[in-house]
Computed example of a mutant assay.
Amino acid sequence: MTVTTTAPPLVRSLGDLLRQWRKHRLLSQLDLATRAEISPRHLSFIENGRSAPSRDTVLRLAEALGLELRERNPLLLAAGYAPVYRETGLEAPHMSAVRDMVRQVLAAHEPYPAVVLDRYWNRVDANDPAWLFGLGVAPRLLEEPVNLLRVSLHPEGMAPRIANLGEWRAHLLSRLRQQVTMTADPELARLYDELIRYPCDQPEPRVELPGPGEIAVPLRLRYEGRELAFFSTMATFGTPLDITVAELAIESFFPADPETAEVLRTTNWQAAVGSTRG
């Protein structure tokens, strides 16, 4: 299956952009106008270029469409307004509070693995126990930027060590497919099209159904003759106003059984990571 997008990245007309996003969200003019609290007549005039909306109206339409911050700036530019949301590198001095918060979360989660991802699933940061996920991975897959979906599912990545590869692969691809649908981002669509071509010798469930006693899809990873089992959670910033911050996500992995917890608690992660780097 190939995921395609319906919103081209470069469209000059505000009306065209709104119409494409509205159709992508399967909304009628009445639906969108109601959500944005404007009249359907006004929305029709905006889409046809007969009315110039205020900046507030453009932002309300973007909110009603469920657009992420990255997608809102093109609407503002098309309407003749300056972008509102900036994209700041994490290395910028005024982003120090964000860097400190991320590192505190990563450190506090030890001895369990945690990674920080950007919009495209590239690794931004990780704690020492996340070293587990890089074991046996081809060096070329660990060159920056390290894409964690590619590392997870590539036959030269983690895939040979994932005991439930079919189940975990279906879970990851489902998450990415939903992200493509929401953002219409062609780069994410290309990543999805790449990943689905990777081989998998296990059945991939079309629908995730719990087995006896299961509460979430686990990651089952082979490690030194054992099988470690993890659940994961994803955390994001609650009220971001910067594109970089809005697109950061921290995925934290927790042991799914006592044996995994014991291995993680008794491993000297700093020594393990140091020996690899040395």
Rank of each mutant, 00 (worst) to 15 (best):
V58N: 07
V245A: 08
L173D: 01
R60P: 03
D242I: 02
E187P: 10
L176V: 00
Q178P: 00
R41Y: 03
L132T: 11
R150A: 02
D118K: 13
G134L: 10
L14W: 11
L69Q: 11
E71G: 10
W131Y: 15
R86T: 14
S39K: 11
L142A: 05
A163C: 07
N127P: 02
D242M: 01
L90S: 01
A246V: 00
A272Q: 15
N73C: 08
S39I: 11
S44R: 06
V273P: 01
Y85E: 01
L32P: 02
R169D: 14
P40L: 13
P139Q: 10
L188Y: 05
A138R: 14
N73I: 14
D56L: 15
D128A: 15
F133E: 13
R55N: 06
E143P: 00
Y120V: 03
T233V: 10
T181Y: 12
H42Q: 14
P8S: 12
D193T: 11
V245P: 00
V105A: 12
D16M: 08
Q29G: 13
M234T: 12
T266I: 02
P155H: 14
V263N: 00
D31Y: 03
R197M: 01
T244D: 07
V84D: 05
A7F: 12
A271Y: 14
Y192I: 05
E194S: 00
I162E: 10
V3A: 10
P205V: 07
L77Y: 02
P212K: 09
Q179A: 06
A36L: 03
L173I: 06
A249E: 04
P139Y: 14
L209D: 06
A62L: 04
G211L: 10
I243G: 01
L67M: 14
A62I: 13
A126D: 09
D185R: 04
S13L: 15
E224A: 15
P186R: 02
E167A: 13
Y81I: 01
L67I: 07
L228Q: 07
E167M: 09
E71L: 06
E87N: 08
E214H: 13
A272N: 04
E71P: 09
T276S: 15
T233M: 08
G15M: 05
L76I: 03
L77V: 15
T183G: 08
V180L: 07
R22L: 08
F254P: 00
T5E: 08
T181M: 04
E224G: 01
R277L: 13
T239N: 06
E262Y: 12
